[in-house]
Simulated scan of single mutants.
Amino acid sequence: MFDILMYLFENYIHSEQEVIVNPDELTDELTRAGFHRQEIHKALAWLERLADLQDGDAKSYLTSQPSTATRVFTEQEAIRLDSQCQGFLIYLENLGVLDFATREMVLDRVMELEATNFNLDDLKWVVLMVLFNLPGHEAAYDQMEGLLFEQAEGPLH
């Protein structure tokens, strides 16, 4: 399912190509690209839930939580997100790329994925997908995009 999301993001959303709105046409195109229909339907449901979160749930997060709250990861979240991923989420909050609401949206979408080997690069893409269509988060999206495609210069020590 994550591969389909990546394919959609890279080939439509991120490249600014015209998005096929008809789910049947999109399913047919993804099938021609080699994806299985069951996984396609799961990916489309994942995107639909993301849209639902963007439309409503984020607003309730913003008004209900103090900015000084500390997030404690559940056991299931800690299994999916290793310490590197958890640290990266905290880093993004400290940078101002994520706030309480967007962090919770990211966690919601991460936990919905059926990925067995979820890693930091996968997390970065989920963050980018969540931020992409959030009104008022264009600067955070640009900053996250820079972090995603940033290449280290010179030797790493």
Rank of each mutant, 00 (worst) to 15 (best):
F149Y: 15
A51W: 03
H41E: 15
T70C: 06
L44W: 10
A43M: 11
Q84N: 02
G96Q: 09
Q65H: 09
S64K: 03
L81N: 08
N119C: 08
M129R: 10
R32L: 15
T63F: 06
D108C: 05
D122V: 00
N133W: 09
A69D: 14
E48Y: 08
A51N: 12
E77A: 06
L47P: 03
D82I: 14
A33D: 05
A140E: 09
Y61Q: 08
R49Y: 13
V110L: 06
F35Y: 15
T102W: 00
L147M: 08
P66G: 15
D121S: 04
H137R: 15
F88S: 02
N117K: 14
V72Q: 05
T102Q: 02
W46F: 03
S67W: 04
I40F: 13
F73V: 12
W46S: 07
T31I: 12
Y141A: 03
S83M: 13
L113I: 00
L148G: 03
W46M: 01
L128N: 03
T102G: 03
E114M: 10
H41G: 02
M111R: 10
G87E: 02
D57M: 04
V110K: 12
R71C: 02
R80L: 13
K59D: 15
M129N: 07
L131C: 03
R80M: 15
T68I: 08
N94E: 13
G136R: 12
G146P: 06
F88K: 09
V106F: 02
E75D: 06
P135Q: 11
L30D: 09
D142M: 13
E75I: 14
V106Q: 04
Q84M: 05
V72W: 06
D108E: 13
L148V: 06
G56C: 11
D108K: 07
K42M: 10
Y61C: 15
A115V: 13
M144C: 00
A43H: 12
A101M: 03
A51Q: 14
F100Q: 02
L131N: 05
L62G: 08
T31Q: 11
A115D: 09
Q65R: 10
F100N: 05
L50N: 11
V106K: 00
L62C: 05
Q84G: 01
T116I: 01
S67M: 07
